[in-house]
């Protein structure tokens, strides 16, 4: 049966209270989003575009002459700079160690804490304390702990009954980066423990019970129930740890300033050194772009790999 009555949507435009209300809704919505959009434009979109644009110019932070286009000069300089390669290498080493170690330890902690015994909340809170503490404060306190006659070496002495003596951790090119790695994992592991825990809690308890009834031992239950259940969490943990690792700056700036002998310099440290200390905004933008490409590549590769396996 057809009807000749016009449907609500077919009303001619520009008339009636409905259209006026629509227009008001639209205008109000624009008013509501505009502060956020404006701020994001000024403090996100413009600087991101500038990162791309300035990398091909001679811009300096403070300069009497205006910047001009220089083509790929900043990039050719960058790829001839041995310190930049050292910073790429250090950043890669840092990430290569921190990602598996921190992800693994965090999962271990999550499993350890995720029991019905009680005290879950207490231990979770305690392991989380370094996460809410400033990295600057942590770096300064650990500088004291890492001294030649500091607490860490006293502890090594005591535990090995005086057989082993620790080095001057932060002033030795071969131990400075490992010392920073250890401290960074110690600081960040509680964060990822919490992420793993929230993943563990999404796995239905009856799955574990069913597996237990079928005679699966703990390891079998972990392999066949827990691990597959953490698929989404796994991708997230891997990507966030990797990107955080690539951003390494604060610890280095406070503890070693890239030394000794460039053994702890990193990509972001080099960018800040060039762009702020030496005021070479253009060169720093080129480094920032390389950093961004790195971050993007890593997250795409990880997303692809974690998707592929499952």
């Amino acid at each position: 049966m057809t009807t000749l009555l016009p449907r609500a949507g077919a009303r001619p435009p520009g008339r009636g209270p409905r259209t006026a209300a629509r227009r008001r809704e639209r205008l109000t919505a624009l008013g509501m989003v505009s502060p956020a959009v404006l701020l994001l434009l000024v403090f996100f979109v413009v600087p991101v575009v500038l990162a791309f644009a300035l990398a091909f110019t001679s811009a300096r932070l403070i300069s009497p002459t205006p910047a001009h286009f220089v083509g790929l000069r900043n990039f050719t300089l960058l790829f001839q700079d041995p310190v930049f390669f050292r910073s790429l290498l250090n950043t890669a080493v840092f990430a290569a160690v921190v990602v598996p170690v921190q992800a693994g330890l965090a999962l271990g902690l999550a499993l350890l804490v995720n029991t019905k015994v009680g005290g879950t909340n207490f231990f979770r809170t305690v392991y989380f304390v370094p996460v809410v503490t400033s990295m600057v404060v942590i770096s300064i306190v650990w500088m004291f702990l890492y001294q030649k006659t500091g607490l860490v070496n006293h502890l090594i002495d005591t535990l090995t009954l005086g057989h082993l003596h620790g080095p001057d951790w932060l002033n030795d090119p071969s131990t400075a980066l490992p010392a920073i790695i250890f401290m960074s994992v110690w600081q960040g592991v509680g964060f990822h423990m919490v992420i793993w825990l929230s993943g563990l809690q999404t796995i239905p308890a009856d799955l574990h019970e069913a597996a237990a009834i079928d005679g699966a031992d703990r390891w079998a239950r972990f392999r066949h129930v827990t691990w597959p259940g953490l698929r989404a969490t796994r991708t997230f943990v891997l990507i966030t740890i990797t990107i955080d690792a690539l951003r390494l700056f604060t610890q280095v700036n406070v503890m070693t300033q890239g030394g000794p002998l460039d053994s702890t310099t990193t990509v972001v440290y080099q960018a800040v050194h060039a762009g702020y200390t030496q005021q070479q905004t253009a060169y720093a933008s080129a480094i920032s772009l390389v950093f961004f490409v790195l971050v993007l590549a890593v997250s795409l590769i990880q997303r692809f790999l974690t998707r592929e396996k499952d």
Binding site: L40, F43, F44, V46, P47, V48, L50, A51, L54, A59, L61, I243, R247, F249, V268, A271, V272, A274, G275, Y276, T281, A284, S285, I287, S288, L289, F291, F292, V295, L296, S299
Partner: peptide, 17 residues
């Protein structure tokens, strides 16, 4: 989409800006 861009990518151009 802006969430994938870390602050460090545009921090130095932002200082200039």
């Amino acid at each position: 989409a802006t969430l994938i861009v870390p602050f460090e990518t545009f921090a130095l151009p932002l200082v200039w800006w």
